[in-house]
Each structure stands twice: as structure tokens, then as C-alpha cells.
């Protein structure tokens, strides 16, 4: 599949990058990204990815737009109040970014509907993005990433704290999984509903999550090992991103980085 003349013009600033080129742009076009949660993170990440020429995006959220969402969920406006977030986002993004097919799944992710979402084997999704707003769903997303063998890019933000990590059990099992870092019995105090958040704080993490996703797509080695040897010779090294935890303090403006490590006793990835 070649890049068309129109696409070449539209994405010229991306194609200009030696790390992207026509090959990378094609890679974006052929990718399908699954986004769980269409709130502060999900709306912005989805918009960046759709705008970059990602071919397919599936948005999952059972929530409806509320007034308190509008300061940070910039895709929504007061006309959308009461309407499902995945549905509104899909309509608006498809209108703005015609190259991107966007599917909406208007339910919360739950153990009951994962079979429905992940029905094709092997998985049709190239990346799984966790943009959810609660710990239980984050554990479920992690489990699905492991079961489906998909790279997980997980972002979160609350108060002035943001966290970002990417993992793939098949490619870097030594890094473990989300549950190795945060076991499911952890007590969680920081959610946007209980301690608040500023819009740009969520926006920072959403931008980083979108950038990390594009970088990972440019390194096919990180997604599907030895699928395409020529495409694997890109200059982006996704292995530098996989298995790392990045933490942003938006009050002090500091970034910290750490290597993730598998818990040999993890009940999820070591079972």
C-alpha cells in the first residue's frame, strides 16, 4: 500500500522525518489502535493519533459527557452533555480526520465484554492504550494486553502527578506487567474525582502517550518480532521505551524514569 499524493501533502511534515518517511506513514495507516477510556487522556490521545494518519482506532467508554469534563476533555462541548463519550468522539474525529476509521464501543470495559472486543485471533490491534480513570479497569486492561500479546501503553494523571509506561510480555518479559508494579490489592487515593486535576496536566500525559505510541509503531520489532526485516531497520528504538516507567511531577516540573521489573510471584503474568 503506497502513500497517495494527497496523503503525501497532508502528512508531509511527518514523512519529512527520516525516522518516519513513507514507510512509517504507511505503517501508521495500516495500524489499528484500541483506546480504553475516552476522557481527558483518551480524547486527546485519540485526536493526535487520528490526526497523524492512524488507519483505525477503536474507542471504548460507557460514560456520558458531563459539565465537569469540559475544562480538560477539549473534544467535547456543552451540546454533547449526556451523550456517550466514545460515540461523540468517534463522530467528531471522523469528521475532522477523514483518513481514519473510528469505531465506538459504548460500554465500559468489563470481564463480561472482553471476549466481544478481542474476538479476532490473532488480535487485530497493534497497540492497546489505557486511558481509563480507575484502578480496577487498569488491572483488566493489563490482563487483556498479556492474553492478547499486545503492547500496552498506559498513561494516568491526577492532582499534579502523571505516570506513563509501556510493556509487552512477549518481547520483554523481564519487565513484568502493570500488576507487578501495582498489585491489585493496592489502596488507591489519587483519582481526578477525589483530588482534582488541571487540564494541561492530563494533556501533557496524553501527548506523551500519543508520541510513545507513534514511536512504538515505527519500530515493528517491538510490536511483532521479525515480521518485516526491512521495516525493522528504522532509527526509532522502541526497546528504549518498552519496560520503562516515566513519572511526571507537574508541580515541580520534573520527570523521573525507572526500569520495570517482573515480580516472580505475580499472580497475573507469572501464573
Amino acid at each position: 500500500m503506497a502513500v497517495t499524493d494527497k496523503e503525501f501533502l497532508r502528512y508531509s511534515r511527518q514523512i519529512l522525518l527520516p525516522e518516519v518517511g513513507e514507510q512509517g506513514q504507511n505503517r501508521f495507516k495500516q495500524s489499528h489502535i484500541l483506546i480504553i477510556g475516552v476522557g481527558g487522556l483518551g480524547t486527546l490521545t485519540a485526536q493526535y493519533l487520528a490526526a497523524a494518519g492512524i488507519g483505525k482506532i477503536t474507542l471504548v467508554d460507557g460514560d456520558v459527557v458531563e459539565l465537569s469534563n469540559l475544562p480538560r476533555q477539549l473534544l467535547f462541548s456543552k451540546e454533547d452533555l449526556g451523550v456517550n463519550k466514545a460515540q461523540v468522539a468517534a463522530i467528531k474525529l471522523m469528521r475532522a480526520y477523514e483518513d481514519c476509521e473510528i469505531y465506538s464501543y459504548c460500554e465500559y470495559l468489563s470481564a463480561a465484554n472482553t471476549n466481544d472486543l478481542f474476538s479476532s485471533k490473532p488480535s487485530e490491534f497493534d497497540l492497546l492504550l489505557d486511558c481509563s480513570d480507575n484502578f480496577d479497569v487498569r488491572q483488566l486492561v493489563n490482563l487483556q494486553a498479556i492474553k492478547q500479546g499486545i503492547t500496552l501503553v498506559s498513561a494516568s494523571a491526577a492532582h499534579f502527578q502523571g505516570q506513563l509506561l509501556s510493556i509487552n510480555q512477549q518481547i520483554s518479559p523481564e519487565s513484568g506487567c502493570y500488576h507487578c508494579l501495582y498489585p491489585s490489592d493496592m489502596s488507591v487515593s489519587q483519582t481526578c474525582q477525589t483530588i482534582g486535576v488541571l487540564g494541561p496536566m492530563v494533556g501533557t500525559l496524553a501527548s506523551m502517550q500519543a508520541l510513545m505510541s507513534l514511536n512504538l509503531l515505527l519500530d515493528v520489532d517491538v510490536l511483532k518480532p521479525s515480521l518485516d526485516e526491512t521495516a525493522a531497520k528504522t532509527k526509532i528504538n522502541g526497546n528504549q521505551l518498552l519496560g520503562k516507567l516515566f513519572r511526571f511531577d507537574g508541580g515541580k516540573f520534573t520527570w523521573r524514569q525507572a526500569s520495570l521489573l517482573r515480580d516472580p510471584n505475580c499472580s497475573v503474568c507469572s501464573a
Binding site: 477510556g37 476522557g39 481527558g40 487522556l41 483518551g42 489505557d130 486511558c131 481509563s132 480513570d133 480507575n134 484502578f135 487498569r138 498513561a155 494516568s156 494523571a157 491526577a158 492532582h159 502527578q161 502523571g162 505516570q163 501495582y182 493496592m186 488507591v188 487515593s189 489519587q190 483519582t191 481526578c192 474525582q193 486535576v197 492530563v202 513519572r247 523521573r256 525507572a258
Partner: peptide, 10 residues
Amino acid sequence: LEVFSVVAGG
């Protein structure tokens, strides 16, 4: 040593 809480919001 860095000690920190999980951030689950989004």
C-alpha cells in the same frame, strides 16, 4: 529510594 502512589486517573 523513590516511594510513590499509584496514579489511576485519566
